[in-house]
Protein backbone atom coordinates (compact mmCIF):
# COMPACT_ATOMS: atom_id res chain seq x y z
CA UNK A 1 0.00 0.00 0.00
CA UNK A 2 1.31 3.40 -0.91
CA UNK A 3 1.15 5.80 1.96
CA UNK A 4 -0.54 9.03 1.02
CA UNK A 5 1.61 12.07 1.65
CA UNK A 6 0.31 14.15 4.50
CA UNK A 7 -1.31 17.04 2.66
CA UNK A 8 -3.47 18.68 5.30
CA UNK A 9 -1.55 21.19 7.33
CA UNK A 10 -1.97 21.19 11.07
CA UNK A 11 -3.11 24.47 12.63
CA UNK A 12 0.43 25.17 13.80
CA UNK A 13 1.97 24.45 10.40
CA UNK A 14 -0.57 26.72 8.72
CA UNK A 15 0.34 29.53 11.12
CA UNK A 16 4.05 28.90 10.46
CA UNK A 17 3.45 29.14 6.70
CA UNK A 18 1.56 32.41 7.17
CA UNK A 19 4.45 33.76 9.30
CA UNK A 20 6.98 32.72 6.64
CA UNK A 21 4.91 34.28 3.86
CA UNK A 22 4.63 37.54 5.82
CA UNK A 23 8.39 37.62 6.33
CA UNK A 24 9.04 36.99 2.64
CA UNK A 25 6.77 39.91 1.72
CA UNK A 26 8.61 42.05 4.28
CA UNK A 27 11.96 41.00 2.79
CA UNK A 28 10.67 41.73 -0.72
CA UNK A 29 9.58 45.25 0.27
CA UNK A 30 13.01 45.84 1.84
CA UNK A 31 14.77 44.71 -1.34
CA UNK A 32 12.55 46.96 -3.49
CA UNK A 33 13.28 49.98 -1.27
CA UNK A 34 17.01 49.22 -1.26
CA UNK A 35 16.99 48.81 -5.02
CA UNK A 36 15.08 52.06 -5.49
CA UNK A 37 17.61 53.94 -3.34
CA UNK A 38 20.49 52.47 -5.32
CA UNK A 39 18.76 53.04 -8.64
CA UNK A 40 17.84 56.66 -7.90
CA UNK A 41 21.30 57.64 -6.65
CA UNK A 42 22.93 55.82 -9.57
CA UNK A 43 20.64 57.26 -12.24
CA UNK A 44 20.55 60.87 -10.97
CA UNK A 45 24.10 61.23 -9.67
CA UNK A 46 25.45 64.43 -11.26
CA UNK A 47 28.82 64.73 -9.56
CA UNK A 48 32.23 63.07 -9.72
CA UNK A 49 32.51 62.32 -6.01
CA UNK A 50 32.62 58.95 -4.34
CA UNK A 51 31.48 57.92 -0.88
CA UNK A 52 34.42 55.53 -0.67
CA UNK A 53 37.14 58.09 -1.33
CA UNK A 54 35.55 60.73 0.89
CA UNK A 55 35.59 63.57 -1.68
CA UNK A 56 32.25 64.97 -0.48
CA UNK A 57 32.54 68.30 -2.23
CA UNK A 58 32.18 66.56 -5.61
CA UNK A 59 28.94 64.75 -4.71
CA UNK A 60 25.94 66.29 -6.46
CA UNK A 61 22.30 65.20 -6.56
CA UNK A 62 19.07 66.90 -7.59
CA UNK A 63 17.50 68.36 -4.37
CA UNK A 64 14.14 66.66 -4.99
CA UNK A 65 15.84 63.32 -5.55
CA UNK A 66 17.95 63.89 -2.44
CA UNK A 67 14.83 64.46 -0.34
CA UNK A 68 13.15 61.40 -1.85
CA UNK A 69 16.20 59.20 -1.18
CA UNK A 70 16.40 60.58 2.38
CA UNK A 71 12.76 59.62 2.96
CA UNK A 72 13.42 56.14 1.58
CA UNK A 73 16.46 55.80 3.86
CA UNK A 74 14.31 56.67 6.87
CA UNK A 75 11.84 53.98 5.79
CA UNK A 76 14.60 51.47 5.07
CA UNK A 77 16.71 52.01 8.18
CA UNK A 78 14.14 53.01 10.80
CA UNK A 79 10.53 52.19 9.86
CA UNK A 80 11.14 48.75 8.36
CA UNK A 81 13.47 47.49 11.13
CA UNK A 82 11.06 48.69 13.82
CA UNK A 83 8.17 47.00 12.03
CA UNK A 84 10.32 43.89 11.62
CA UNK A 85 11.08 43.75 15.34
CA UNK A 86 7.36 43.52 15.99
CA UNK A 87 7.01 40.52 13.70
CA UNK A 88 9.91 38.34 14.84
CA UNK A 89 10.02 36.11 17.90
CA UNK A 90 12.33 36.33 20.90
CA UNK A 91 14.96 34.02 19.36
CA UNK A 92 15.35 36.10 16.20
CA UNK A 93 15.14 39.30 18.24
CA UNK A 94 18.07 38.06 20.35
CA UNK A 95 20.10 37.46 17.17
CA UNK A 96 19.22 40.96 16.00
CA UNK A 97 20.36 42.43 19.32
CA UNK A 98 23.67 40.57 18.96
CA UNK A 99 23.96 42.03 15.46
CA UNK A 100 23.29 45.59 16.61
CA UNK A 101 25.72 45.16 19.51
CA UNK A 102 28.39 43.94 17.10
CA UNK A 103 27.80 46.95 14.85
CA UNK A 104 28.03 49.34 17.79
CA UNK A 105 31.26 47.74 19.06
CA UNK A 106 32.74 47.81 15.55
CA UNK A 107 32.30 51.61 15.49
CA UNK A 108 33.42 52.13 19.09
CA UNK A 109 36.65 50.22 18.59
CA UNK A 110 37.03 50.67 14.83
CA UNK A 111 37.27 54.46 14.80
CA UNK A 112 40.10 54.80 17.35
CA UNK A 113 42.03 51.94 15.72
CA UNK A 114 41.61 53.61 12.31
CA UNK A 115 42.71 56.93 13.83
CA UNK A 116 45.91 55.55 15.39
CA UNK A 117 46.75 53.60 12.22
CA UNK A 118 46.27 56.84 10.27
CA UNK A 119 48.57 58.58 12.76
CA UNK A 120 51.08 55.82 12.16
CA UNK A 121 50.90 56.47 8.43
CA UNK A 122 49.30 53.13 7.55
CA UNK A 123 45.79 54.25 6.52
CA UNK A 124 44.10 57.31 4.98
CA UNK A 125 42.31 59.57 7.50
CA UNK A 126 39.02 58.20 8.91
CA UNK A 127 35.93 59.41 7.06
CA UNK A 128 32.21 59.18 7.76
CA UNK A 129 31.28 56.59 5.14
CA UNK A 130 34.11 54.33 6.24
CA UNK A 131 32.86 54.51 9.83
CA UNK A 132 29.34 53.74 8.60
CA UNK A 133 30.66 50.71 6.70
CA UNK A 134 32.45 49.53 9.84
CA UNK A 135 29.17 49.66 11.73
CA UNK A 136 27.20 48.02 8.94
CA UNK A 137 29.58 45.13 8.34
CA UNK A 138 30.20 44.70 12.08
CA UNK A 139 26.45 44.34 12.53
CA UNK A 140 26.10 41.99 9.57
CA UNK A 141 29.02 39.76 10.63
CA UNK A 142 27.81 39.58 14.25
CA UNK A 143 24.31 38.65 13.11
CA UNK A 144 25.64 35.91 10.81
CA UNK A 145 27.84 34.47 13.57
CA UNK A 146 24.87 34.45 15.96
CA UNK A 147 22.70 32.66 13.39
CA UNK A 148 25.39 30.10 12.56
CA UNK A 149 26.06 29.33 16.24
CA UNK A 150 22.37 28.87 17.04
Amino acid sequence: MILAKKSVLGPGEARTRTRQRRQMIFLGVSVVIGGTIGGLTGAFDQGDGSLFSGDWDKLKLNPAIAVLVSALLVIGFIALPLRGFGQIDEFKRENNFIGFTGGCLAVLVGFPIWAVLYAGGMLPPPHAFGIWLLGFFGMFASYLIARIRA
Binding site: G12, R15, E94
Partner: peptide, 25 residues
Protein backbone atom coordinates in the same frame (compact mmCIF):
# COMPACT_ATOMS: atom_id res chain seq x y z
CA UNK B 1 4.16 17.23 15.58
CA UNK B 2 6.75 18.72 13.26
CA UNK B 3 8.88 21.64 14.43
CA UNK B 4 6.77 23.88 12.19
CA UNK B 5 3.58 22.61 13.84
CA UNK B 6 4.91 23.27 17.32
CA UNK B 7 6.28 26.66 16.23
CA UNK B 8 2.88 27.69 14.91
CA UNK B 9 1.11 26.58 18.09
CA UNK B 10 3.59 28.63 20.13
CA UNK B 11 3.55 31.56 17.69
CA UNK B 12 7.33 31.48 17.26
CA UNK B 13 9.58 30.62 14.31
CA UNK B 14 10.62 27.06 13.48
CA UNK B 15 14.22 28.15 14.07
CA UNK B 16 13.29 29.13 17.62
CA UNK B 17 11.84 25.69 18.30
CA UNK B 18 14.97 24.07 16.88
CA UNK B 19 17.25 26.29 18.99
CA UNK B 20 15.30 25.49 22.15
CA UNK B 21 15.30 21.75 21.43
CA UNK B 22 19.05 21.71 20.87
CA UNK B 23 19.65 23.77 24.01
CA UNK B 24 21.10 26.73 22.11
CA UNK B 25 18.37 29.11 23.21
Amino acid sequence: WSQAELAGRLDVSRQAVNAIETGKH
